[in-house]
Amino acid sequence: MQDYRHSRWITAALLAPAGVFFVFLLILPLVVVLVYSFGARAPAGGYEAAFTFDNYLNLPARGKAFFNTLTLAPLGTLLTAIAAFPVAYILALKTDPKWRVTLLVLIMAPFWTSQLLRYYAWIMLLGSKGIPSWLAYIGIADLRIINTPTAVLIGAVYGFLPLMVPPIYVSLEKLDKRLLEASADLGATPLRTFFQVTLPLALPGVATGSMLVFILLMGDYILPQYLGGGKVFFIGNALVDLFLQSRNWPYGAAVSVALVLIMFLTISLYMRFILSRTDKRRAALV
């Protein structure tokens, strides 16, 4: 029995397959991308061995894609969190327990329909024959939504609400309802209870959901492609163009490296900020 528990062979056999996948399909390819990013474009497209920083020095040529991604991805995440919080709050605290799970599943269900088709439907809804033409009836004429940053933000909230609601719901549902009663008994207004008790305790859920949505938005391609219509494009659109159309692989590799570095940097800063907030909160409560 002891032999089994401490057998290194069994441990190795359990970890080896995942290890092989991670090394050969994640680390090795990422190293290849890093090597390519210092290379040169072959005349016919693709890669030619070289050592140059030109690709990185040229990054500002795609500055617009970086700017759009770095403004609209955080903004989209924030708007999604703002839209999702009341939904999670109503479901977790103000709904009959009988209906809670069903209503939550209905929030998540759209995620099981083709993302491509749902965004395509939004092209029609936001296009000139859709919502803008209905608004024209009530006097708001000549409103153009499709292919603007607004359309991309609407799409972000639409696409990621189903992912943002569940983690917030879970943290609100776990919350000890007696804390809310205690706060009310001690004379706090509902608003004050919300900001001093409910919101801080729901913060881990908001943090988890926001991280998930942020990661997906930063690397998104379909959303800006469909609702930005080539006018509001992200880094993802630049990458598809560089790898599949203009076939400038070394430059595309440099853009990928920059995207991954930016993500690691923002996510670790964000994690540090959230962890310090929750630690302080815990210290204050103790």
Binding site: P29, V32, V33, V240, F243, G252, A253, S256
Partner: peptide
């Protein structure tokens, strides 16, 4: 953490 699009690109090349 690595975006799907980068996984696709790195696997491809």
């Amino acid at each position: 953490m690595v975006p799907g699009i980068v996984i696709g690109i790195s696997t491809l090349i």
